[in-house]
Design a protein around this nucleic acid. Structure first.
Length: 121
DNA sequence: TCCATGACGAGAT
DNA sequence: GATCTCGCCATGG
């Protein structure tokens, strides 16, 4: 982090970072969402990449953030390299009832959870 | 300041 | 579908 930390920056009325964490925490077990969906829900449809950047700090958040439920737009577990082990993300999902094959969520479109729809926009 | 990089996405071919 | 390219925003050298 730098002097202008995102986590404690109170300048913004509601941190984009905190918003991301909140949305991710609301993803129900057995469901997954995408970086782009979160970005869109927060009013920054072109900032999916920023959401991914925020996730770099997800693992140190309290309470815990279920980062394993966030994948890219086609259901690929692109963030698994940031977990303790390469299989941690997949195992966590499997434990919640989300099957993963070749780093890809099985039946992704059916398990997709869109905050803009589920939480209302 | 400029440039490369990154848990991304959408559109074009 | 598979690839490529470009736009996105923040960070670090």
């Amino acid at each position: 982090m730098s002097k202008r930390t995102l986590i404690n920056d109170a300048v913004q009325e509601r941190d984009f970072f905190q918003d991301v964490m909140d949305v991710v925490r609301q993803v129900p077990r057995g469901r997954v969402t995408s970086y782009g969906a979160i970005a869109k829900y927060l009013g920054a449809p072109r900032s999916a990449r920023l959401v991914g950047w925020c996730m770099n700090n997800a693992h140190v958040q309290r309470p815990h953030v279920p980062a394993q439920r966030v994948v890219n737009s086609i259901g690929l577990l692109t963030g698994k390299h940031h977990f303790a082990t390469l299989t941690a993300m997949q195992e966590l999902l499997a434990k919640e009832g989300v099957k993963v094959k070749d780093d890809q969520v099985v039946d992704f479109r059916n398990k997709f959870w869109d905050p803009a729809v589920e939480l209302g926009l």
